[in-house]
């Protein structure tokens, strides 16, 4: 099937098998490997991207379902070489270790902050429920998102 998706502001048109996931399309067809696969079953959130502004798990979304949509991936967060405030905050607060869950965490953080610009610790924990991190115990991810809120609201 032919699909056309605007990804990080750029339009991509490709012929794809109907069964392939959006993650697979990003990684294998477009070589955008920042979006990771940690479980393939929507449980871990490493594949989180935003679809028309909302966080989705791209491993259980078919590429064809994203036809016509606006998608932002981790590669689209930095602008003109400067990291997005969420990315800056993750660095500042040591919100990542091995880095594998990180793209998903940054994307879901964007979603949390979009809906709750001044989130409480509880709001953040709730918002992160769909994303696993095995390295940080979430402690510094929460600090990072709190710090990102400060940077964005400044």
């Amino acid at each position: 099937m032919k699909i056309s998706i605007r990804i990080n502001g750029k339009k991509h048109t490709d012929e794809v098998e109907p069964r392939i996931s959006l993650t697979h399309y990003l990684r294998e067809t477009l070589d955008m490997t920042g979006t990771h696969i940690g479980c393939d079953t929507s449980a871990c959130g490493a594949c989180t991207v935003t679809l028309n502004g909302d966080a989705v798990k791209s491993c259980t979304l078919l590429a064809v379902q994203a036809d016509g949509a606006e998608v932002t991936t981790i590669e689209g967060m930095a602008k003109n070489g400067e990291m997005h405030p969420i990315q800056q905050a993750f660095k500042e607060k040591h919100g990542l270790q091995c880095g594998f869950c990180t793209p998903g965490m940054v994307m879901v953080a964007a979603d949390i902050l979009k809906h709750t610009p001044n989130p409480s610790e509880e709001d953040i924990r709730h918002g992160l429920k769909g994303n696993f991190c095995r390295c940080t115990g979430y402690h510094n991810i929460i600090k990072s998102i709190q710090h990102a809120a400060e940077l964005i609201n400044k």
Binding site: T35, I74, E75, M77, A78, M83, F90, G99, T102
Partner: peptide, 8 residues
């Protein structure tokens, strides 16, 4: 961190 945060 920079490469991991950029998906690189």
């Amino acid at each position: 961190d920079a490469r991991f945060l950029k998906g690189a």
